[in-house]
Amino acid sequence: MSEIAWGLASDKTAIMLAVALLTMTVLAAGPLHPIDNFVNTYPRPLWDEIRVFLILWLDTVASRFVALPVLGVTALHFAYYHRSWRPVILGVVGVFGMVCLVASMKLLFSRSHPRTYDPSFFSDLGSVSFPSGHGANAILIYGLVLFMIIRYKAARPHVVQRLALCIVGIALLQSAVSVYLHFHWFTDLATGMIAGGLALRLTIRLDRMIPEGRTRFWWPWLGGSFWGGREQQQVHSGGPAAH
């Protein structure tokens, strides 16, 4: 367990993202308030005409009600096709880690809602605006879908590139809609996407550190056993356990 913790803590990309997350948090606490206020008070054209449409449709693109089923179907597909529980475990661990990170930051900083026109932290109103969960969802959940596609070589490189652009488009669309609807401050969304990126990187790192092992052979259609995964593998391959 200590080796896993050290491996996660020593990942250079994760360290850079953690520093970026800390930096954005500090900037959002004060120095970037003028930008937040400018974006929050900028005129909203066609407010009455498109507000309901944005809430019911475009704002849900990065919500967990939409993103989690996409991740679930993807993980179950690869789990069944490759006879491995690893895709399901990756999905659960990644989402759980991201939710814990975002939820703890929301409760810790208690930022005022944009409709109060006060971007201060530690609000007495009990708001949980910072960071944006939708921003984190767009990067972490859809990023995990793309990672599984890459990991199991399910698409050609040019398709992967287009899917990556789609994720960027979803994140930008979600940010624009949330800002327009006064659901989040600008820095909420930027910090949320960094938090999602950090959770995604740690999940990928964890996947690379843990060998296939029991997540591969603990599969009901193979007649495997979680506790006897190695022995079961030897039986199928004619190893010592078969004798």
Results as ranks from 00 to 15, higher is better:
M1Y: 10
M1E: 12
M1V: 11
I4Y: 09
A5K: 15
L8S: 13
S10D: 13
D11L: 11
T13E: 12
T13D: 05
M16R: 14
L17Q: 00
L21E: 06
L22A: 15
L22K: 06
T23F: 15
T25S: 12
H33V: 08
P34I: 06
I35A: 15
F38T: 10
V39Q: 07
V39S: 02
N40V: 09
T41S: 14
Y42W: 14
P43K: 13
P45G: 09
L46A: 12
L46K: 10
E49C: 00
R51S: 13
V52Q: 11
V52P: 04
F53W: 13
L54A: 08
L54Y: 00
L54S: 06
T60S: 12
A62V: 05
F65M: 11
F65N: 06
L68H: 02
P69T: 04
V70G: 03
L71F: 01
L71E: 04
T74L: 07
T74G: 05
A75H: 03
Y81E: 15
H82Q: 09
R86T: 05
I89H: 03
I89G: 09
G91K: 02
G91D: 04
V92F: 14
V93L: 15
V93F: 09
G94W: 05
F96R: 01
M98W: 04
M98F: 05
M98Y: 01
V99W: 01
V99R: 08
L101A: 13
V102Q: 01
S104V: 08
M105A: 14
H113A: 10
H113Q: 09
P114H: 00
R115E: 11
Y117L: 15
D118Q: 11
F121M: 10
F121W: 07
S123V: 02
G126Q: 03
V128D: 07
V128R: 14
F130T: 07
G133E: 01
A136R: 00
A136I: 05
N137S: 14
N137R: 03
A138V: 01
A138C: 08
L140I: 09
L144A: 03
L144M: 15
L146A: 12
M148A: 09
R151V: 02
Y152K: 08
Y152H: 09
K153N: 11
A155F: 13
P157N: 07
P157Q: 10
Q161Y: 04
R162G: 12
R162F: 07
A164Q: 02
L165W: 13
L165G: 04
V168Q: 02
I170M: 05
A171R: 01
V177Q: 08
S178Q: 14
H182K: 15
T191P: 01
I194Q: 07
I194P: 00
L198S: 05
A199N: 06
R201C: 08
R201D: 00
L202N: 03
T203R: 05
I204M: 14
D207P: 02
D207A: 04
D207G: 00
D207H: 08
R208E: 15
I210K: 03
R214N: 02
R214V: 09
R216S: 10
F217R: 10
P220G: 09
W221C: 03
L222E: 10
G224A: 06
F226P: 07
W227L: 14
G228D: 10
E231S: 13
Q232L: 04
V235F: 09
V235S: 05
S237I: 06
G239P: 10
A242M: 04
A242G: 04
A242D: 12
H243G: 14
